[in-house]
Lab assay of single mutants.
Amino acid sequence: MPVRRGHVAPQNTFLDTIIRKFEGQSRKFIIANARVENCAVIYCNDGFCELCGYSRAEVMQRPCTCDFLHGPRTQRRAAAQIAQALLGAEERKVEIAFYRKDGSCFLCLVDVVPVKNEDGAVIMFILNFEVVMEKDMVGSPAHDTNHRGPPTSWLAPGRAKTFRLKLPALLALTARESSVRSGGAGGAGAPGAVVVDVDLTPAAPSSESLALDEVTAMDNHVAGLGPAEERRALVGPGSPPRSAPGQLPSPRAHSLNPDASGSSCSLARTRSRESCASVRRASSADDIEAMRAGVLPPPPRHASTGAMHPLRSGLLNSTSDSDLVRYRTISKIPQITLNFVDLKGDPFLASPTSDREIIAPKIKERTHNVTEKVTQVLSLGADVLPEYKLQAPRIHRWTILHYSPFKAVWDWLILLLVIYTAVFTPYSAAFLLKETEEGPPATECGYACQPLAVVDLIVDIMFIVDILINFRTTYVNANEEVVSHPGRIAVHYFKGWFLIDMVAAIPFDLLI
């Protein structure tokens, strides 16, 4: 008679799926529990143990900040960024110097990925580790590398530091407007667009060049630039800015003055950032001319202004700041037409079709709590990747769950009947059967004279019903998954307890 339990259901295979997918890609990662103190490590794979030199037993239950890997060259700011990422709910990448158990130093890129439950609360953290440099290539500990984003994938490793954006290309926007319009339909740009040429040739750093990471940081200074100062900065030398009595002219307006920039070969870094931020506020060169004239017309309804409409929906549905990093990277690809469009465009503009998908598509409701890094690593669709929660398995109709209350009560009843059979069957065979043979035949009273025979008949009927119930009862397979398919249940029961239950259900007393 089957006594099969499996009270692990309803099970959740999400954690096993993450481990299996990460292991298949030869990654070095740990999984931490966000619900406990210090976000203790609950799993670390073999790749991480080989990377740091510690065994799994030495890593388990330690804080996922990996303070046991810190050393003299470990930056405090990087460690603080990892700790801050564990307090938030967004994906974050941090470069930090770690030390192995043998004392060797290596520069590592740590990717902190939160995993949320159905309520939107962070319950786990996945920390992925990628070695960037070994100890002989690690720089000085005073050099802070965590304020910069990861290198873009479309640049060669040897040319990542030679990417320079020439400031004269930004200063000569109005001069290039006529050349853009003359391109017409034969050019790649839309009317009114501004073409910015980027020099990728390796050259020595000069005062006129600005690194790509500095251009990325310009967006942080746009908020500090007032509207009046932006307007004066875009007017140009024809209309000098008016300053109040006793007030000095704005240095932001002076930063885009061609006369002032041409007199000296070098520009201050602050002026460069502010000038680029001011130019980015204009949607095209037409807006710059309109600002000089004193009238700013409404933005025209053409394809170039609607190019950012799908980007707005993608940004609203993005799951991490990696989408913004990807957008900034692609927006700086050289030799393309940049349409400086305000994100607050007309909502009635139709979304044009684009061959290049900048932001990841909208994630469906079932995966809105899973970050983009987890979705990318697992390579699963929205119909396959579940949320991290207890999910009731989908069972067929008329199927009994093996952990249901009805099955528990039924098993206790069958257990009592088995005990009765084990006690009274030998007793009936030894004593009652002998008395029946010696006594007179009682054929007239039937079952009324033999109450134990009636009980034995009921017990046999219950055993037959138990066999039928076992054909529709779920079970737990070797992978700790609840199986509810009727065919698989029948095959599993035939290979197991079916023969024993059938022999126990045969009414031998009635056959004798």
Rank of each mutant, 00 (worst) to 15 (best):
residue 3 V to N: 14
residue 5 R to F: 07
residue 5 R to L: 15
residue 6 G to S: 07
residue 20 R to C: 07
residue 21 K to R: 07
residue 22 F to A: 13
residue 23 E to G: 06
residue 26 S to R: 13
residue 26 S to I: 01
residue 33 N to F: 01
residue 36 V to F: 01
residue 39 C to D: 04
residue 40 A to Y: 06
residue 41 V to M: 06
residue 43 Y to V: 01
residue 44 C to E: 01
residue 44 C to F: 01
residue 50 E to V: 07
residue 59 V to D: 01
residue 66 C to P: 01
residue 72 P to L: 01
residue 73 R to I: 08
residue 74 T to G: 01
residue 74 T to R: 01
residue 76 R to E: 15
residue 82 I to Y: 05
residue 84 Q to P: 01
residue 88 G to N: 13
residue 89 A to D: 13
residue 98 F to K: 01
residue 99 Y to V: 01
residue 105 C to R: 13
residue 111 D to V: 07
residue 111 D to I: 03
residue 115 V to I: 11
residue 117 N to V: 09
residue 123 I to Y: 05
residue 128 N to E: 13
residue 136 D to W: 14
residue 137 M to R: 13
residue 139 G to K: 06
residue 140 S to I: 11
residue 141 P to K: 15
residue 147 H to G: 05
residue 148 R to T: 12
residue 149 G to A: 05
residue 153 S to A: 07
residue 154 W to Q: 07
residue 164 R to T: 06
residue 165 L to V: 06
residue 169 A to Q: 06
residue 174 T to W: 15
residue 176 R to A: 05
residue 186 G to N: 07
residue 188 A to I: 06
residue 189 G to A: 06
residue 190 A to I: 06
residue 196 V to P: 01
residue 198 V to S: 05
residue 200 L to K: 15
residue 202 P to R: 09
residue 207 S to V: 10
residue 208 E to T: 10
residue 209 S to W: 13
residue 214 E to C: 09
residue 217 A to F: 14
residue 219 D to M: 05
residue 222 V to L: 11
residue 237 P to V: 13
residue 240 P to G: 09
residue 241 P to S: 10
residue 246 G to Q: 05
residue 246 G to A: 15
residue 261 S to G: 11
residue 261 S to F: 12
residue 262 G to A: 05
residue 262 G to T: 09
residue 263 S to Y: 09
residue 263 S to H: 06
residue 264 S to E: 11
residue 270 T to H: 06
residue 277 A to V: 12
residue 281 R to K: 15
residue 281 R to L: 07
residue 289 E to C: 07
residue 297 P to L: 09
residue 300 P to Y: 15
residue 306 G to P: 14
residue 306 G to M: 06
residue 309 H to S: 11
residue 310 P to A: 07
residue 311 L to G: 11
residue 322 S to R: 09
residue 331 S to F: 04
residue 332 K to P: 11
residue 335 Q to N: 15
residue 337 T to W: 14
residue 342 D to I: 02
residue 343 L to Y: 07
residue 345 G to H: 11
residue 355 D to L: 10
residue 358 I to T: 05
residue 363 I to W: 10
residue 369 N to P: 07
residue 370 V to L: 08
residue 380 L to S: 04
residue 381 G to T: 05
